Amino acid sequence: MIEDFTYYTPTKVVFGRGAENKTGELVAVLGCKKTLLHYGGGSAERTGLLGRIRESLREAGVSFVELGGVVPNPRLSLVNEGIELCRREGVDFILAVGGGSVIDSAKAIAYGAADEERGDVWDFYARIRVPRACLPVGSVLTIAAAGSEMSCSSVITDEATGTKRGYGNDLCRPKFAVMNPELTMTLPAYQTACGCVDILMHTMERWFGGGGRMELTDGIAAALMRTVIRNAKILVSEPENYDARAEVMWAGSLSHNGLTGCGTDGGDWATHQLEHEIGALFDVAHGAGLAAVWGSWARYVYKENPARFAQFATEVMGLQPAATDEETALAGIAAMEDFYRELKMPVTIRELGIEPTGAQLKEMAEKCAAKFEGGAAGTMKKLSAEDMERIFRAAM
């Protein structure tokens, strides 16, 4: 049965070569007085991107202050620093220049800076409070991966407790997303591959949900996943291929703005939750962590709906049907792992360069389960802490 849904995508997209030069006018038209320019490490400065953004803001008459230093698995401590800076400087707009980590950090700052209660922004991620306001956010995307440039979600890590939590609310959906595929050409191959895995997983999580199906949504989702797989392979040998970069970048946005989940139950998301625990404890790259654990999750749950996994094998991975849905399903899982290997992505936790102890695997599973009412995650199959621990062990 097709599920009821609301599809909401208010983000204006400016896509193509030189698009970043329009950033200032995009901010100015919103009537904002002072912007926080938020970014990560030195690459945006070295490539001249930040210089072009600053000049664009000045030409549009937009004043700004800056806060850099965002790292993968963005930190709560920097978010709190940004909130205080925004309050002190009277900032009324947050401009994120970077990838998903920078955009997620910007969203968290935007929640906190607009919070009239002036409480702990972590309350929103811990589900203690619900935000009532959020400063407007815009982004200049430099990494095709997270889809945060068009999504309602963000993920923040409290490094003091080793806890990583995601939160979704339409208040934080960016007002605009500036996307120039050329800005992704200098990324290391590993980072590009991690991004492609993350994009795929955003649609795979929705594909493998436990609820209804919509034929049109399935067609869009399958086409998106095939497009990412095809172009990710091109980028292995042709990292400066503009068309392949453009296909992957646009897929990243569409994969996580809700389009590939219309008419479904919203998706399973257990693989993401499992990876969040790995990322929180060991600070691994998100896409690599997803690749490392997905195959073990899939083999643990596929019997709940082998036909759906078989459909994935034939429509996404391009395999011929085997004698049974179960055989086709397992072949599809193996084919996806082969694709990860082709990108030099890990398919086990050890291949991430870490080796959690049995006690750490148990701890990660228990922390993951504790996030959910009833202590169970997922919709394809409800996973208890014991189930999650088995998946972690199988993924070693």
Rank of each mutant, 00 (worst) to 15 (best):
G263P: 11
G263V: 04
G263C: 11
G263H: 10
T264Y: 13
T264K: 05
T264S: 15
T264I: 00
T264V: 03
T264F: 15
D265M: 07
D265C: 06
D265S: 09
D265E: 12
D265Y: 05
G266D: 06
G266E: 04
G266T: 11
G266W: 03
G267V: 01
G267R: 00
D268K: 05
D268L: 11
D268C: 10
D268A: 08
D268G: 07
D268V: 12
D268W: 02
W269P: 00
W269C: 00
W269K: 00
W269A: 01
W269L: 01
W269R: 00
W269Q: 00
A270H: 05
A270V: 01
A270F: 09
A270P: 01
T271N: 14
T271P: 10
T271I: 13
T271K: 03
H272E: 07
H272S: 04
H272G: 10
Q273R: 08
Q273Y: 10
Q273N: 08
Q273V: 05
L274W: 00
L274R: 04
L274S: 10
L274M: 15
L274F: 12
L274T: 05
E275I: 02
E275H: 01
E275S: 14
E275M: 07
H276Y: 13
H276T: 07
H276V: 04
H276Q: 12
H276G: 09
H276R: 11
H276P: 06
H276S: 07
E277L: 03
E277I: 03
E277K: 11
E277W: 03
E277V: 07
E277S: 10
E277H: 05
I278M: 15
I278H: 06
G279N: 15
G279Q: 10
G279W: 04
G279F: 08
A280D: 08
A280L: 09
A280M: 11
A280N: 12
A280I: 06
L281Y: 12
L281K: 13
L281S: 11
L281N: 09
F282R: 09
F282D: 00
F282H: 11
F282W: 12
F282Q: 01
F282V: 03
D283E: 11
D283Q: 13
D283C: 09
D283R: 15
D283I: 06
V284D: 01
V284S: 06
V284Y: 00
V284A: 03
V284W: 03
A285T: 08
A285Y: 13
A285R: 07
A285I: 07
A285D: 13
H286E: 14
H286W: 11
G287H: 06
G287W: 03
G287T: 04
A288W: 04
A288E: 15
A288N: 09
A288F: 14
G289P: 09
G289I: 05
L290A: 05
L290T: 02
L290S: 04
L290Q: 01
L290C: 09
L290D: 03
L290P: 06
A291L: 05
A291R: 04
A291W: 08
A291C: 13
A291N: 08
A292M: 10
A292Q: 07
A292L: 06
A292C: 13
A292W: 02
V293H: 06
V293A: 12
V293F: 08
W294M: 09
W294H: 11
W294A: 04
G295N: 13
G295F: 11
G295H: 08
G295T: 13
G295P: 14
S296F: 09
S296K: 03
S296Y: 06
W297D: 06
W297H: 15
W297R: 02
W297F: 14
W297P: 01
